[in-house]
Amino acid sequence: MLLIVGPLAAGAAAAVAAKRSGRPTTRQRHVITVYRPLSELEVTQLPGSLKEIADRVEIRLAAAPGGRGTEIAVRIPDGSEVTDGEVRRALRETRSLLEAGDVLLPSGPPATTPTLLNRPLQTVTQHGREGGLL
């Protein structure tokens, strides 16, 4: 468990350390590949939550090599209040809408019981599409 939880904890610790050192904790640039040809996509017509933040970030589209679809790159400009988490969630949801026509919702209603030990995991899963490395 130490080795599994380790990388997650290390990521959080690195973010805290970076904040204290004055270095920016945001990546500012995020990119995802969507399995749809560039010819079918337009920055202004992207669906889902990416559309909601489109006027506060910079979005660029480029053809992915080898017929892999389209790379959607998002840059958070200096001064924008949009967070990395919002961009990650928006990119993932937009990809799912473009590819699958829908965004998968979690199982429900929940069968779990909140406990002290569950709390960190529940915090992570409540923002499941906002975290990670994307």
């Binding site: 997650l8 679809g69 990809r95 998968l104 992570v124 490395l133």
Partner: peptide, 26 residues
Amino acid sequence: NCWYCDQRLFSLCDNGNTNPAITETL
């Protein structure tokens, strides 16, 4: 419908996990 499903690598689907943050970090 994603690239991985199109390659018939279905367990690598990009749209079937509502909590990608955990395994992506690991």
